[in-house]
Design a protein around this nucleic acid. Structure first.
Lengths: 164, 164
DNA sequence: TACTTCTAGATGTACTATACAACTAAGTGG
DNA sequence: CCACTTAGTTGTATAGTACATCTAGAAGTA
């Protein structure tokens, strides 16, 4: 049974539902933007993301600034300055990159790991607050659908749906 | 039964699922940010939101800049400059507000309605692309859960638009 | 009425994040 | 050795934002 055939019922057509998703994504992006940097003024969304990436890659010995730039679609100058700031704040350190005297191996410091954990916890709490009253099933379903959405057809850095 | 007691099963505990949601929300926000201003350079997320608000309120004759500021948690100076830009671009017009010579009634122009529709269509297409291959049921469930999430309790560190 | 206070908005200033371009220093391949 | 590439830094420009201040009009009150 297609959505067209069920349109006479209160079931909305797919276009309408997609519009609803688009709208809610916009609301979410706006809220995220409005609060960027307010929750933890020391760690913006980008800073958080960069530190998180260092944590993820620490098993393989850290990564270089160019990797961060490539992975998140940022200009190398932007990453360079972000890294400077994070180093100044003591959240990461720059070690000589083995075999390349131009590059620096970036590593999370204990202070960086600490603040990363704190911010993650804050975000967790905010999300958890928003999900209070939800059933386990709904929470699990939401996680599954969101994950699927993000890893969707055009994976990687892409999808301008809520850009701007 | 707590999540700790069910951990031996393959069902993840609520904390883990909430973490997954937090992570996916971060991915989403980052992606949205990375593409800020690239799809429709003339209409940022905030501009889009403001024009959309004018469209929503046009039945009641438009709204004032202070309404936009209050509704989206923006400073009045920010809104003032955004409105200036949007007026310069011909997307909105400022009419004398009836009964108050300080304020201006903001109204979408036909050009504004046009670009708003274009950008909405672009976003719709991007979301639709990401949802290709999803069943009607999953799309509907995702819309429902997202809507519920956004309209959820505002914790104070979240949701400026519902905090007023 | 006159005086005070409030409000809508505009403007001055400062700061952050970002990109692009030019530059430096170091690695790579002929 | 030289040309080219690469990693990163720095100079410059722009956009978005907030806070403080200013103006003009509105609203309350003695």
């Amino acid at each position: 049974m297609t959505e067209r055939e069920t349109r006479h019922r209160e079931v909305r057509g797919r276009d309408e539902v997609v519009d609803a998703i688009q709208r809610e994504m916009t609301v979410f992006a706006r809220r995220a933007r409005a609060f960027a940097g307010r929750l933890h003024p020391e760690l913006t969304l980008v800073s958080y993301t960069l530190l998180a990436h260092l944590e993820e890659t620490e098993d393989s010995g850290g990564c270089l600034a160019k990797d961060l730039a490539a992975h998140y679609g940022l200009d190398k100058s932007t990453v360079s300055r972000q890294v400077q700031t994070l180093e100044r704040l003591g959240f990461l350190e720059r070690l000589p990159a083995p075999g390349d005297h131009r590059a620096h191996l970036l590593r999370l410091t204990p202070a960086g790991a600490e603040i990363l954990a704190q911010v993650t916890e804050s975000r967790h709490a905010a999300v958890s607050e928003r999900l209070s009253g939800w059933s386990e099933e709904d929470v699990a379903a939401f996680a599954e659908l969101l994950t699927r959405y993000n890893s969707g057809p055009s994976s990687g850095v892409d999808s301008p749906e809520t850009a701007h």
